[in-house]
């Protein structure tokens, strides 16, 4: 076996630019997905039948479709439908936001349901309005319970982000493939980006542990 890591030294900067794209993409999708997921979760626990039905239907759609199908659909259908020339990054962020919100909303809904009923009653008895009760009393407690699940969701998001390479975004994986095609070297660049993904995910897990520990301070 002959490996040529010296050959890819020169393309490391090129690969690292892909890292920024992967991170930008994951971070944007995670944040937007979380916000939209919270909204969907609130729809799911609301007594409004329309909001409730919408959120349930929405979730079933994203659960029922392969992610790569949604992604290609958004990327290729948007220019056709809206006459907007969507970039691969935009298409990726939109799809992954919509998708991860569907999953996260289920997690958050369960997290809210797991918060002691008495918390809500105490808040109501104090005259705290619904919105403040949710944001300041219920959601922080729910969030703490589901933090590990949320981190798992971000890890999944980071891994799935490699799918944007299929629509041409020059993320980590795509760049590895480009290098591979140019230099006829497959193992080394793929191993390199594999290593980068691995480090990212391990760090994420580690950050989550610290967060969890800090939040447990109040227990």
């Amino acid at each position: 076996m002959n490996l040529h890591f010296e050959l890819i030294l020169e393309i490391i900067p090129y690969i690292l630019q892909g890292l920024f794209i992967t991170l930008e993409f994951t971070l944007l999708s995670a944040i937007l997905g979380f916000v939209w997921g919270v909204v969907l979760a609130l729809f799911k626990i609301s007594h409004n039948k329309i909001l409730n039905g919408f959120a349930v239907f929405y979730t079933s759609i994203f659960r029922g479709l392969p992610l790569i199908l949604s992604l290609t659909l958004v990327y290729f259908a948007t220019p056709q439908l809206f006459h907007y020339d969507i970039t691969a990054l935009e298409a990726g962020v939109i799809t992954f936001t919509l998708n991860s919100a569907a999953y996260i909303s289920e997690t958050i809904r369960a997290g809210i349901a797991a918060v002691d009923r008495g918390q809500r009653e105490a808040a109501i008895a104090l005259g705290i309005p619904y919105r403040k009760m949710m944001w300041d009393i219920i959601l922080p407690q729910a969030f703490k319970n589901i933090l590990p699940a949320l981190v798992n969701e971000s890890i999944a998001l980071l891994k799935d982000s490699a799918l944007v390479s299929t629509i041409g975004a020059t993320d980590l994986l795509r760049r590895a493939n480009i290098v591979a095609a140019e230099k006829y070297l497959y193992f080394e660049p793929l191993l390199l980006v594999g290593f980068i993904y691995y480090i990212l995910i391990i760090s994420l897990t580690w950050v989550a542990r610290i967060l969890e520990r800090r939040m447990r301070r109040s227990d």
């Binding site: 008495g118 105490a122 008895a125 104090l126 705290i128 009393i137 407690q141 703490k144």
Partner: peptide, 26 residues
């Protein structure tokens, strides 16, 4: 005011934060 059998303090807030939340926000 209402006091419950199981207290229902807000666990993610300190004693003082528990006490000033509603006066400030409500």
């Amino acid at each position: 005011g209402m006091v419950f059998q199981h207290f229902h303090l807000f666990p993610h807030m300190t004693v003082l934060e528990n006490m000033i939340y509603a006066p400030i926000h409500v």
